[in-house]
Every structure is written in structure tokens, then in C-alpha cells.
Design a protein around this nucleic acid. Structure first.
Lengths: 283, 283
DNA sequence: CCCGGTTACGCTTGTCGTAAAGATT
DNA sequence: AATCTTTACGACAAGCGTAACCGGG
């Protein structure tokens, strides 16, 4: 009764699906077992965690949810980490990358190392590396030059700077600012941005007009070019978009940074790929 | 079979005591049970975690140890956090503080709020707050002015700057620098320092001459004054020491910073104490 | 009356303790 | 030979599933 991870796992599943029976199906239990799990947790914590009918977390349940996710992630990460250390290196290397982290360097390094590429929303990359689903990860984001990215600490990962690029805003062709040679973010304070959590460059507290949930860059560029909202992208990507106008960002001084994540120090084939991905990199 | 926390707990205990039977005694199990726990973990992770006779962690075991400690701490923290949210506020507030964090402000606030004070080595304060052993925590350390302290992230704690003071070096009376009005750390590059993890101001990578393991400030000052090594202290403390000479530190620009730790936002009586401790504080 | 969560109960499985065996210094 | 870990085995409890129960839409 020390908060068994099993119980935690069913709890987060129930909360996510807002259903006991749904969680039971997903986890391969019976409804009864799920009910007992929740009851056990509530007894242990001496607090109601969920309201039934409709199923929703209470205040205490919401608090537990904040803890449970990272906890389960770290648990899985620890497990994967130790097993990886002992297990024989598995020939094939898998690289997780957010869409905007896939640049020329990655495309050049991949075939040479025979690695597999898996494109994921940036928020999921650290977890994929931590849990051992992938051997290496590449995440991107905006940051001050030579400043490390602020990443969620899902587990103790080794992060290495891999690349820095200029940023640009992708505007529809007719936009009033489309003729400019440079833009300041202040100029765009009232602009509407595309919210695309699957692609990245999260704009905190910016009012979004359209939400795009895929991980496809072309779709996002098309949306921006069509005037559904602005997109902040690496200049390279913004200029390669078939439509719209890319205007470099001049202030604040931000760069598009990509970082390499690995569980501990990479070994074997993963180390070769890691070296290629960070060759001549900052930091 | 998802890395039961119980198994993890016995594993870290066995590793710490370097003994199965010792761990069994401490945890209230039989040797047999401990052996089965370790076997279960090793089976789950498909790796030998410990060498027997003598009992010592293998490479994989060492790796697991790095994960297990924080993991168990966070688990306990989550548990305590949720229970605290539900349980009725327990009248009496307990404050954990590292020795050097106990300054005039604390002494003034304590009696007014009827709180209990528990002095701990700085490294243990975050854990005490996270696990709910104490309601609030004060830790201190050296940092650049108005920079937050670098704390181990044992759990998501709310940290608030509480105080900043000047630093000084406590020298024995006859010391060649004892007449100075200010000192640079460079001047003392070759000096020998007292290593006092229980008191704080950890000097990373500094060669220490004497190691003091208590949490008593007077003892530390006496050691420094007697010439057993230098001590870096808040100026207020160094000057109040009965013996020795305190010389303010002029470079690098460091301050003695104290921060308040609380699990989430303090509520009830803890909030009152928290407010008094941070009244007119930086950040 | 149906859908979904809870409770009751039997059974399987896992986990601990006792005790004997094995290994290492 | 002494000490400490492992293995064997029996007892007990925990956890899951079946099925009956209950409460709300």
C-alpha cells in the first residue's frame, strides 16, 4: 500500500477516459478491478479522488494527477535505463524528433547510420527517450542564443546543443508586413498565431486563431500562407514553404535551437549517430 | 511487476547497508524476503544488480540507485501532498531550516506563530518538505545576487526568495589576511576549507582539511577560529562568532541567499508564517 | 429500463516466514 | 567453522473475476 504504480496507472487512465469501464477495457481489467483500484487509492490517501457519474477528478484527484504522470514516466524511464544498460545493444537505432528538428543535418546523418526516424510532437520526445522507446531524441524550440532549451524534466536526460538557426515569421502574401526585411515581435503583439502543439514553437499566452493538431509542416505552412494565422518557424523552413512570405525576426534576439537528448551517454551505434548530429555544434 | 516501490526500497536499503540481513532487520523483513525482493527486481530488469559477498552494486545496480532515490522521494512527496490537501489543517506548523538559514527574521517570526523549528542539514530540507514531514522549509546557499539557488529537484516545490545577506570568510586571528577589509576568493585559491555538509555553504571541488558533520554553528566557528580551516559564512554569523576574524567577501559577487520552500501554495497557519518569513524579500 | 459503478464472494496468485541447504571467507 | 545468502515449502493474504446489487438518467 505504498501507492502501487498499478493503482496510479489505472487512476490516470480512468481520469483521462472519464470512465471506469473504459479504463478497464484499455488496461485489460474488469470494471470491478478498476473500481477496487480506485477504492484502494482513495483509502490509502484518505480522500475522494473522483466524482462518479460523471467521472471527474476532485481537487485531491487533480493534485494527484499532477504527480502521477511524471512519476510513472520516471518509473518507466528508470526501468528502461537499467535494462538498456544490461541488454545487448540492439543494432538498429531509433531517433525521435520533433518536426522542426528535422533539418538537413538529420537527413544527411540518417541514411549513413541506418537509423530509424520517428517524428513526434515535441512534448512527447523527452518521454520517448526516457522510456527507451527511442535511443536518441531531437527537440527544438525558441531560446536566447546559446541558452539551453527549457525542457520538462521527465527524467535525468543528457542534453546537448545540436543546432541553432535564425527565426522567421511566415506571413500570407498580402500581409501589410510582407514587404519588410525584418520584424520585431512587438510589431505582432496583436496578431493571431496558429496554435500547433504537434509541430512546436509554442507561443505562450498568445491568442491563437486556428489550432492545428498534426505534425505535418506543409499543412502548417499552407495554413499560414492562406492567412489563417502567423507561424514562427526556422527561417530555412519558412523560406522553403511554397507560398507566403518569410520575414526574419530581428527582436527579441531569439534563435531556433535544437537539442539532442540521450539517456546517459550514448553508446555503440547511437553514439555514432549522436556524433554526426552534433558535429560542429554550439555548447 | 512494474518495479514495485517496496522492492526499490529494499534494494536501496540493501545497497546502503551492504547487507541483506541488515536491510531485513531495518525494514522488518526476514533475510529470505529481502533475498526474494532482490531476485524479483533482478528478474524484472534482467540484470544482476548486486554482487554478493561482498554485497555491492554492479554497474546496473549503481544506475538503478541513481533513479531509485529520487523516485521514492517523489512518490512519498506525492502521497503526502494529496493527503495534506484533504486532511484538516493540523494546527501546529513545523518549519525545517538549514543552520545558516536561521536568522533574525526566523527567530522573530517563530514565537509569534507558535511554529516548531527543526534544524536539518541543507541537503535534507527539500526532502523533509516534499514528504510532508515539515510544512515549510528554509534553505540557504551562495548565489549570484537575485539568482535563485540551485536546488535538487526532489519534487515540485514552490520556492520563494526569502533573504539575501553579505558573505564573509571567517579566519583565525593570526591569519595573514586577517587585517584585510575585503577578500577575493582568488586570494584563497590554495586555502584549506572546512567541509561541513551539515551546516552548508558547500564549496564544490575545494580541498578540505577538516570535516565537520554536525549542524552546530558554534562548533564550526570554533574550528575555523582555531585555524583548522576557513569557513564561508553570512557576514552576520561570521562577525558574531566569539573568536576569529571575519573579512567580507568582495569578489566574485556572491550573496548568502535563503529561500522558502513549500509544497504548492501554503495554506492556513503555514501561510501566515510564510508571509512573515518573506516579508520585504527579494524576488 | 439501461448503463455504469459498487459490493459480495470464491478462487488463483503472489508474498512472507520457517527451515534446510549452499557458498564463501 | 562461522556467517551470510539462496532455495524449498507451507500458510496466509492480496488481487482479480464472476455475478449480484444499486443508483441515476
Amino acid at each position: 500500500m505504498t501507492m502501487d504504480p498499478h493503482l496510479l496507472r489505472t487512476f490516470v487512465t480512468v481520469a483521462r477516459l472519464a470512465s471506469f469501464s473504459g479504463a478497464a477495457r484499455e488496461l485489460g481489467y474488469t470494471q470491478s478491478a478498476v473500481s477496487q483500484h480506485i477504492a484502494a487509492l482513495e483509502g490509502d490517501l484518505r480522500a475522494e479522488l473522483l466524482t462518479r457519474r460523471p467521472v471527474a477528478p476532485t481537487a485531491a484527484g487533480a493534485r494527484l494527477l499532477e504527480h502521477a504522470g511524471p512519476l510513472l514516466l520516471r518509473l518507466g524511464a528508470a526501468r528502461a535505463d537499467v535494462r538498456r544498460l544490461a541488454a545487448a545493444p540492439s543494432g538498429r537505432v531509433t531517433l525521435a524528433a520533433s518536426p522542426l528538428a528535422v533539418g538537413p543535418r538529420v537527413l544527411a546523418a540518417l541514411p549513413a547510420t541506418g537509423a530509424t526516424l520517428r517524428v513526434l510532437p515535441p512534448a512527447e520526445v523527452p518521454a520517448a527517450v526516457a522510456t527507451g522507446d527511442c535511443d536518441l531524441g531531437l527537440v527544438d524550440g525558441a531560446a536566447a542564443p546559446s541558452d539551453p532549451l527549457r525542457l520538462p524534466d521527465v527524467a535525468p536526460l543528457t542534453v546537448t546543443g545540436a543546432d541553432e538557426e535564425e527565426l522567421a515569421v511566415l506571413l500570407p502574401d498580402g500581409h501589410p508586413f510582407a514587404g519588410r526585411t525584418a520584424l520585431r515581435l512587438d510589431d505582432l503583439a496583436d496578431a493571431r498565431w496558429i496554435d500547433a502543439p504537434g509541430v512546436g514553437l509554442p507561443l505562450t499566452a498568445a491568442r491563437a486563431s486556428v489550432r492545428y493538431e498534426g505534425t505535418d509542416l506543409h499543412a502548417l505552412c499552407a495554413l499560414a500562407a492562406a492567412g489563417h494565422g502567423l507561424a514562427l518557424l526556422p527561417r530555412r523552413v519558412a523560406e522553403a514553404a511554397g507560398a507566403g512570405t518569410a520575414v526574419p525576426l530581428s527582436a527579441p534576439r531569439l534563435v531556433h535551437r535544437t537539442e539532442l537528448l540521450s539517456p546517459g551517454a550514448p553508446t555503440g551505434a547511437a553514439a555514432v549517430l549522436a556524433a554526426r548530429l552534433t558535429a560542429g555544434s554550439p555548447v
